[in-house]
Nucleic acid binder design. Structure first.
Lengths: 107, 107
DNA sequence: TGAACTATAGAACCAAGTCCTACATATTGG
DNA sequence: CCAATATGTAGGACTTGGTTCTATAGTTCA
């Protein structure tokens, strides 16, 4: 299943690269190119406080280390996990990547 | 060179995994584990307006598509590139990943 | 010609993220 | 055993990033 997940994301990357090549070769126009781009984007989930904590504990790191990976302060991670504040757009994207591919994907 | 880049990041991921395994096996303490974690983290650069634009153009996408990848609005990307506003912590992390590994790394 | 994509520009608003302090608890190492 | 470190909670104050809205304008293409 780890294999399946990796395969899926590789496919998406491949689609993007292929579409880019086809566009450079003049075989598809920008319209179509953009549709390819949208179709190969992984949807960004939204994370509850407990989901964030579960995700971090799955990765076996402290709030401080987790924060370093995401390039935020430890206070922010603490606030997310307590439901005090919610991660914004870019932060959610990073959490999504970690959820799918693990912490090593953003090392 | 693409191979070299991939190799370097793989090494960092491997260090993290190995350190985690050693810690679970009780062979290294949390102190050392944390040092390993810090050492295998890629430093996050800060990006100027023109660097962000150059990065996006290197990836051959419009502001709108670039924004979708980062999970921000197109307006934010426009403001970054005009020097109107600067990307925050998590956004800089994403830009760093794109700079190193390309857009497909965060697809 | 008109429809869609691209990018700029600016104003207003909310809350994310930062920084600071203080506190409590384990766990560790000397 | 005691001091030091790591960990997490809590809260207050502040800054500014990110969103939303609208308007403008050049371009590409059917």
């Amino acid at each position: 299943m780890a294999r399946t997940k990796a395969y899926k994301s590789d496919v998406k990357a491949a689609i993007h690269e292929t579409a880019l090549d086809l566009h450079e070769a003049g075989l598809i126009d920008k319209h179509t190119m953009r549709r390819f781009d949208q179709s190969c984007l992984t949807p960004v989930r939204t994370f509850s406080a407990t989901e964030i904590r579960a995700l971090r504990e799955r990765e076996q790191v402290s709030q401080t280390v987790f924060a370093m990976y995401l390039n935020v302060t430890k206070d922010s991670v603490s606030q997310w996990e307590r439901g005090d504040k919610r991660p914004a757009g870019p932060a959610c994207k990073l959490l999504s990547i970690v959820a799918e591919k693990g912490l090593s994907a953003i090392a």
